[in-house]
Design a binder for these strands. Structure first.
Length: 246
DNA sequence: ATTCATGTTGTGAT
DNA sequence: TATCACAACATGAA
């Protein structure tokens, strides 16, 4: 479910409750849910993989983690982590992290780090990347402070698109390649978004979970790489390894 | 049936 | 004190 584009769609769907008053709240979240009863939902926002339900003096932050899910105007069997009921419908969240944020969102979130935002700032991303030049690109792409919203699928697909091996060292990428990395992190996220919206995401994966390279027909390798130790799928023939010279 | 995965946070060891 | 490795969370697809 939950990379940035999926949260983008969730935000869109949940925005029907903007301006509505919470009539009832239930759930097993370890939060003072009563706090939201009778309160008006001021805005529905998103940053990276966070859904932000903003009230006048606090915000409910939902993170779907790996297995989280939600339903609008329908219910899964079993108790929700959290359900908000409004006059025009309801939204239920399952298996997610829910917490309150007390600070103004603009104080907490760097909107320019979100690859799906108008405020996205590729130059700031480049600067952050070059500040830690010894990192592997597979780790850097998952860094939410640099690429908020990018997840493991986007990571793998971006690296395939630009022909870069996931174990490449950030500081060893030619400047132009680094520019491609940054550009595709955003572009692929928008492609992901439209494919997800049309329920055709998986068939567009070129490398993630695949066994054969669509370009050279050679075998795809699968390794758990980097400090993040997440699955990296790559074609050793089509994706070049940029690494420190000995 | 069992394994594993679109992710983050907290804890305890070093 | 700071950093790091790993456990915990918990669902459903393959």
């Amino acid at each position: 479910m939950p990379e940035g584009p999926s949260l983008y769609l969730l935000r869109e769907e949940a925005s029907v409750f903007r301006g509505k008053t919470v009539r009832n709240v239930v759930g097993n979240a370890k939060l003072d849910l009563e706090r939201m009863r009778g309160r008006r939902l001021k805005a529905v926002r998103r940053w990276g993989k966070h859904l932000l339900l903003e009230f006048s003096d606090f915000t409910l932050r939902i993170h779907l983690l790996m297995f989280g899910s939600y339903r609008i105007d329908e219910r899964k069997p079993g108790p929700p982590r959290l359900r908000l009921e409004f006059d025009n419908g309801e939204i239920s969240f399952y298996t997610c992290s829910a917490r309150y944020i007390e600070e103004p969102l603009d104080d907490l979130y760097d909107w320019s780090a979100d690859v799906l935002e108008d405020a996205w700032n590729p130059r700031a991303a480049r600067k952050k990347l070059l500040a830690e030049p010894s990192r592997l690109v597979c780790d850097a792409l998952l860094d939410q402070n640099v690429f908020a919203g990018v997840g493991n699928i986007i990571k793998n697909e971006v690296l395939f698109r630009i022909g870069v091996h996931p174990a490449s060292v950030v500081g060893q990428l030619p400047s132009r390649k680094l520019g491609e990395l940054i550009r595709e992190a955003r572009q692929y996220s928008f492609d992901f978004l439209e494919w997800k919206r049309a329920y055709v995401l998986k068939k567009h994966w070129l490398v993630h979970t695949r066994r054969t390279c669509v370009r050279c027909e050679g075998p795809i390798r699968k390794l758990h790489l980097g400090v993040t130790n997440r699955r990296s799928f790559f074609c050793p023939h089509c994706q070049r390894l940029y690494t420190a010279q000995v």
